[in-house]
């Protein structure tokens, strides 16, 4: 939305600073957690709880992962293209609906609560309808992703616009911000933290919906990462299943926590919504 260049520069600055200074203290507990997880996994393998082709050693999986990186990168590319298109479309639709509901009381009364209801609808439940409407195609997946993500994005905008402090609206009006300039200089920046939280949540839903969509709709042509997962499963290639799951997890964490999380923290710090020392 209306983040001008000065804001963008500031966000980059804020993102860069803690990364340089405080990288290690943030990273080592995570590395330790991963090491403990891999250790526990290996212990399960040693206990022969399940045959090794069902629960292979983590090192077998990581080895295979390194080996398959080329092909996996291909399917990740397909998936990320779909995620980008779906999330982008969800932003357009979610923003339009969010702004309309926030500004028009009749729409709010009519569909305001339904948007929240839509958010709780598991995206898998949309898949059969998507297939009926669009067959096994890219458009079916897009449909599921947009329906998964758009409600959160719309809710973020409604929440942000609703919670603009009245005092700031008054201050803006006194300074001569009316109509569009009130929107541009007061409402949009005041709503920004809530809007970005909405985007972050919308991404999480988009990612889940995309995985659900890809898992169920396998069709010839472009193969995404969850489709790779499905194919590996069908072929009883369980190492492949683990590989795909690891990739899905890593992408989810990187985009959600690292990308959106960092932007959101930077905004909250800038707005004085969190203690700067806590960063």
């Amino acid at each position: 939305m209306a983040v001008d260049t000065a804001d963008a520069v500031l966000i980059t600055e804020l993102m860069a600073k803690p990364a340089r200074r405080k990288l290690w203290p943030a990273v080592w507990p995570k590395l330790l957690a991963v090491a403990i997880f891999i250790g526990a996994w290996q212990v399960v393998v040693w206990l022969h709880w399940k045959p090794e082709y069902v629960v292979p050693s983590p090192f077998t999986v990581l080895d295979q992962l390194r080996h398959d990186l080329g092909t996996l990168t291909g399917s990740v590319g397909v998936t990320m293209r779909r995620a980008g298109e779906g999330f982008g479309l969800a932003i357009l639709i979610g923003a339009a609906i969010g702004l309309a509901v926030a500004r028009l009381p009749i729409l709010r009364a009519g569909i305001g609560s339904m948007i929240t209801g839509l958010q709780t609808m598991p995206s898998v439940a949309w898949v059969p309808l998507a297939i009926v409407l669009f067959q096994l195609s890219e458009r079916a997946i897009l449909f599921v992703v947009v329906l998964g993500a758009a409600p959160s994005i719309a809710n973020g905008i409604i929440d942000g616009v609703d919670n603009v402090p009245p005092l700031l609206m008054r201050a803006g009006r006194v300074l001569g911000a009316r109509g569009f300039s009130a929107l541009r200089y007061v409402v949009v920046p005041a709503a920004l933290p809530a809007v970005v939280s909405g985007l972050k949540q919308g991404w999480a839903f988009a990612w889940r919906s995309l995985m659900a969509g890809e898992l169920i709709t396998v069709f010839p042509g472009s193969i995404g990462i969850a489709q790779t997962l499905n194919v590996s499963y069908q072929n009883s290639d369980f190492v492949g299943v683990y590989e795909a799951m690891i990739v899905i997890f890593v992408i989810g964490v990187v985009v959600d926590a690292v990308f959106f999380g960092t932007i959101l923290r930077a905004i909250r710090k800038r707005y004085g919504l969190i203690d700067a020392a806590a960063l």
Partner: peptide, 11 residues
């Protein structure tokens, strides 16, 4: 107009 609270824009 000045208010009791500074009413500055926090961003």
């Amino acid at each position: 107009l000045m208010f009791q609270e500074a009413a500055l824009f926090p961003w």
